[in-house]
Amino acid sequence: MNFIDYYKILGIDKKATASDIKKAYRKQARKYHPDLNPKDADAKKNFQQINEANAVLSDPEKRKKYDKYGKDWQHADHFENTKQYQEQSSGFSGREYSQAHSGRDFSDFFESMFGGSTNTGRSRQVKFRGEDYYAKFQLKLTDAYKPHQQTLSVNGKNIRITIPAGIENGQTIKISAHGGTGINGGPNGDLYITFSIAIHPGIKRLGNDLYTHVDLELYTAVLGGEITIDTLSGKVKLKVKAETQNGSKVKLKGKGFPVYKKEGQFGDLYITYVIKIPTHLTEKQKGLFAELSKS
């Protein structure tokens, strides 16, 4: 696996604090978000690398391993365990062991430990499972409404996944065997993707139910009538009762968000009417309202 300098990606140095990392991540994420760079072919790749860098550097334990082992940080636990075993079986002290392997790349060390000619038959057969990878992925509310395919770039490899409709904000799904490569023929680790659903400017989601506000003309509120509104599933016609009050609520059953992995099941859509007071009235119109107020 090629080395990726996470500090360089976020534009910080190794002395950066947790607060520095958080600020740098937000700045870079805004700069390279695919939605803000539709003409930049590399925007999605850059955005994913930014998320990957943040996932590692914002986690104290992962950052410690990354700082110590570089590109092999995912195998840090395996390295430490195997180093301890080798020390015990060879009689090396920790200091002697470090001196014996000083100046060597950890990848070279793994190779000599598991595949080199100096290993015993027993050590050559030791297999280790690959490291699990963790990633964050942001979706629009409209993207999470329908199942769709997405291509992710993980350590230079493209992975095509199908994201089910109705996925929750903060929900994590596992993609088996798409984590770190196993050592010495061991199984690959898994990839865990945590989804972040962006806030929609006009719709609020609570579970599988949706909430929105709809402007209503004063005349329609008073006299009643029919209006057309936009929902995530398309346009819907609504009949408005006469004398509808400001803040009145109506429920559209089955027009909410799809239930995760339950095809054909949906939550409800709750609409709150906001009555618009007319402005820029003519003298004649004001007169009519004056007459109405006297009646």
Rank of each mutant, 00 (worst) to 15 (best):
Y6M: 06
L10K: 05
D13L: 03
D13Q: 06
I21R: 07
K23Y: 05
A24M: 11
R26E: 14
Q28A: 09
A29W: 06
K31C: 00
Y32Q: 08
H33E: 06
H33K: 08
P34T: 12
D35G: 00
N37H: 10
K44H: 08
K45H: 07
F47V: 02
F47W: 15
F47P: 03
Q49E: 11
N54F: 15
L57S: 04
R63S: 04
K64W: 01
K64V: 01
K65E: 02
Y66A: 00
K68W: 00
K68D: 02
K71F: 05
Q74I: 13
A76E: 03
H78Y: 02
H78N: 13
H78S: 11
H78T: 14
T82Y: 02
T82K: 06
Q84Y: 01
S89Y: 04
S89Q: 13
F92K: 04
F92T: 01
E96R: 04
H101F: 02
F106C: 00
D108A: 11
E111W: 13
S112C: 01
S112V: 09
M113Q: 07
M113F: 09
N119E: 10
G121E: 14
R122Y: 12
R122G: 02
Q125E: 10
R129T: 15
G130P: 14
G130I: 13
Y133F: 12
Y133R: 14
K136E: 11
F137Y: 13
Q138P: 10
L139M: 09
K140C: 00
K140T: 14
L141D: 05
A144G: 07
Y145I: 00
H148S: 10
Q150F: 01
Q150M: 12
G156D: 08
G156W: 09
R160W: 02
I161H: 06
T162M: 08
I167E: 07
E168W: 08
N169F: 03
H178W: 09
G179D: 08
G179A: 07
G179R: 09
N184P: 11
N184H: 06
D190H: 13
Y192Q: 08
Y192D: 00
I193M: 05
F195Q: 10
S196I: 13
I197K: 10
A198M: 12
A198Y: 00
I199D: 11
I199A: 07
G202E: 13
I203N: 04
I203F: 00
K204V: 12
G207L: 10
G207D: 09
L210T: 03
T212R: 03
H213A: 08
H213M: 11
L216M: 09
E217K: 15
T220E: 10
A221Q: 08
V222P: 02
V222L: 13
E226P: 02
L232P: 06
S233F: 00
K239E: 11
V240H: 05
K241E: 14
K241G: 04
K241I: 01
A242G: 11
A242S: 14
T244C: 05
G247T: 11
G247S: 07
S248R: 15
S248V: 05
K249C: 07
V250H: 03
F257N: 05
G264T: 03
F266E: 06
F266R: 14
G267C: 03
D268Q: 07
Y270M: 12
I271H: 08
I275F: 08
I275L: 10
K276G: 00
K276P: 04
I277H: 03
T279A: 07
L281A: 03
T282Y: 04
Q285E: 15
K286Q: 13
K286L: 15
K286M: 12
S295K: 12
